[in-house]
Design a protein around this nucleic acid. Structure first.
Lengths: 130, 130
DNA sequence: CCTTGACCTTCCAGTTACTGGAGAGCCTAT
DNA sequence: ATAGGCTCTCCAGTAACTGGAAGGTCAAGG
């Protein structure tokens, strides 16, 4: 399967698939005589795996790690669970931050009359050193 | 005030303050004879403003826009409110996404026994095309 | 007067994960 | 034969810094 077909199957842009090949994350199964990359079902499965893991916010480095576990039948599920749990904790941390930002910004917005006068609690709120 | 002092006051790394000067976001008030950047209270206030706005997730471009409104006494607070509201909507969007990720990942984790056996719902969950 | 050490300067490279584009080769159909 | 739609490689750029090298400046101590 040529790259555009593989990319479509995996739900990724062609450029990204080529990029993943470049950085050695998912190598094409083969190359045609004219140099075209060729992907089989197994490689596409890996691409899908990466896409999903990326969507979960795993970095390329972590994806590499997970992919190693994915292809390695002898890995324990404890390893994977550990990585996933750390990632979950990161997500929860991010959620807390975002909630804080949300509340503070919402507060500033409600405090702002939004008329033509120049004094604005959002601007003055942002200028606080806190 | 020299850069390290100003940076400390603003709560930013020196490198970042220099970077902001380079990109013309917050210019130093002055330069000493020997070329040292010098910042006055007004410039530090702008740096604080930027730091806070960045913490709210505003991009440098948006910060530039906001800073323009900040220094411009003739701006209406409606302008600022509009920008802030859009930003709030973005934050809420991000929150929803994050919640979805969180739930799906948490689900995979609880489904995983986390023992020494190789079969792992997290791995197989990631490998789903969905 | 000289040196030491903490500053400061500029410039260059690297980070993350791609994305866009140029220029050129290949393949299939009409 | 040629038109189009692929594909290739390579280069550059994105956002917002961060790290490091090489070198200038300044105040204090010996």
């Amino acid at each position: 399967m040529k790259i555009s077909h593989a990319a479509e199957r995996a739900g990724l842009p062609v450029k990204t698939v080529r990029y993943y090949a470049d950085i050695g994350l998912v190598a094409p199964t083969d190359r045609s005589a004219s140099g075209y990359r060729s992907y089989d079902q197994d490689a596409i499965q890996k691409l899908i795996f990466i896409r999903r893991a990326r969507a979960f916010g795993f970095s390329i480095t972590k994806c590499r790690e997970l992919l190693g576990l994915y292809v390695d039948d002898s890995r324990s599920s404890a390893d994977v669970k550990e990585i996933a749990k750390r990632r979950l904790a990161e997500i929860e941390e991010k959620q807390k931050e975002l909630q804080y930002l949300h509340d503070e910004l919402a507060h500033l917005i409600t405090a702002c009359r939004g008329d033509d006068r120049p004094d604005c609690p959002i601007i003055s709120g942002l200028a606080q050193p806190a």
